[in-house]
C-alpha cells in the first residue's frame, strides 16, 4: 500500500511541486495550506509522514510539529521541515520540537525524494 505523506505549506506552488514529486514517486499525498489545516486533516487520518513549511499563517511549522508529536498516533512518524538557508537556528528549534529532519529551500525534486527515502520506509 502506498505511504501517505502530508505536505503543509502556504505556498501553492511549493505544495504543487512537492505533491507532484511525491505522487510521481508512488506516494499518496494530502495537502494542507497551513498548520491549523494540517492538524485538522490529521485527525483520524492515516498519515505516514509529514512535510511542513515553517513559516505559515494561523499556525506555524514549529507549533504544528509540537501538536503532531503530542498525538499518540503520530508520535514516531518522520516529520521533515522545509527551511531556508537563513534559518539555521530554526533547525535546532525544529529538532527540539520533534522534527526528524529538514530540507533547505530551494531544493530539487530528487533531493526531496532522497530525504524521504532516508526517513520513511
Amino acid at each position: 500500500m502506498a505511504k501517505i505523506i502530508m505536505t503543509a505549506d502556504d505556498s501553492a506552488s511549493i505544495r504543487q511541486m512537492v505533491s507532484f514529486t511525491l505522487k510521481d514517486a508512488g506516494y499518496e499525498v494530502v495537502e494542507a495550506v497551513d498548520g491549523k489545516d494540517a492538524l485538522n486533516k490529521l485527525n483520524g487520518a492515516k498519515v505516514n509522514m509529514l512535510i511542513t513549511d515553517l513559516n505559515m499563517p494561523n499556525m506555524d511549522g514549529l507549533e504544528l510539529i509540537k501538536h503532531v508529536r503530542a498525538k499518540s498516533a503520530f508520535k514516531f512518524i518522520p516529520i521533515i521541515m522545509l527551511t531556508t538557508e537563513s534559518q539555521a537556528g530554526k533547525k535546532q528549534e525544529g529538532k527540539a520540537a520533534g522534527a526528524t529532519g529538514w530540507i533547505v529551500k530551494p531544493f530539487k525534486p530528487e533531493q526531496l525524494i532522497a530525504v524521504i527515502k532516508k526517513v520513511l520506509r
Binding site: D10, S11, S13, I14, M17, N55, L82, T84, K105, P106, F107, K108
Partner: peptide
Amino acid sequence: HTIKGSGAMF
C-alpha cells in the same frame, strides 16, 4: 520569504 523560496525552486 515564500516569493524567494519558491522562486529559486522554479
